[in-house]
């Protein structure tokens, strides 16, 4: 529907949902809820489409015997086994949960554990790459927040460090977060207006 019809549908639907928020009663409210339900169904179907596309891409890589195709084969086998197990035994069955607890959770947790090592290394190398005042300020802030996050091992809680940590987290960090949130809100409003007016057409047309 790369025609003005798609733009018209998108604009009309957007205006109806927006009107349902401003006038949450009667047919507008029911129409809004219906359209949102449709959107959720489409999103769920899109997830299935994504899974099918993932299988297709990696299947092509296996057929072409391209570099790294062995990992594609492992992915497809794992996906098939999981689908079979979850489909046969159920998504929250003990067998499905066993696969989740013993494969997915350790793998993802290990990746984040590596992230902790990498972050420490980056902080250590920061002063060598950029020995300026900003780097020193960044490292000092990290050091104080870590000191105040938990009681020191074998030492216990140092109240001053906890106060300093809470001040840093609750004042400067929150100030920055508020700015980010305000920016996000303004951006969302601008994006909504552009879509409603047809200036921005992420759906094509």
């Amino acid at each position: 529907m790369r025609t003005p019809l798609s733009a018209a549908v998108a604009i009309i639907v957007g205006l109806l949902i927006l009107a349902g928020y401003f006038f949450p009663f009667g047919p507008l409210l029911s129409l809004k809820n219906t359209l949102i339900q449709w959107a959720m169904i489409l999103a769920g179907f899109a997830l299935l489409v994504g899974v099918v596309n993932l299988i297709k891409v990696h299947w092509i890589k296996i057929r072409k015997r391209s570099p790294g195709s062995i990992y594609s084969l492992i992915l497809i086998i794992s996906l098939a086994v999981t689908i079979v197990v979850a489909g046969y035994f159920g998504p929250v069955a003990s067998s499905s949960l066993w696969i989740f607890n013993n494969v997915q959770v350790p793998v993802e947790t290990s990746l984040l554990a590596l992230l902790s090592v990498l972050l420490i290394y980056v902080v250590v190398r920061l002063l060598r790459r950029r020995p300026d005042s900003i780097s020193i300020l960044f490292i000092a802030t990290v050091f104080l927040v870590l000191l105040g996050t938990a009681p020191l091992f074998f030492i216990g809680e140092v109240r001053v460090l906890t106060v300093i940590r809470n001040f840093i987290v609750q004042v400067p960090a929150v100030a920055g977060a508020r700015g980010i949130l305000l920016g996000v809100a303004l951006g969302a409003i601008a994006t909504g207006i552009r879509i409603l007016t047809g200036a921005d057409r992420p759906y094509g047309g």
């Binding site: 420490i120 902080v123 250590v124 060598r128 020995p131 870590l146």
Partner: peptide, 27 residues
Amino acid sequence: YWDAFSAGLLATEVLILLGSLVSLGVV
């Protein structure tokens, strides 16, 4: 996890402090 968490934070602080001092010395 509290003891391990506290010990890990302390180790992290020591590594950052020592590494930063070494980097400053090298620079």
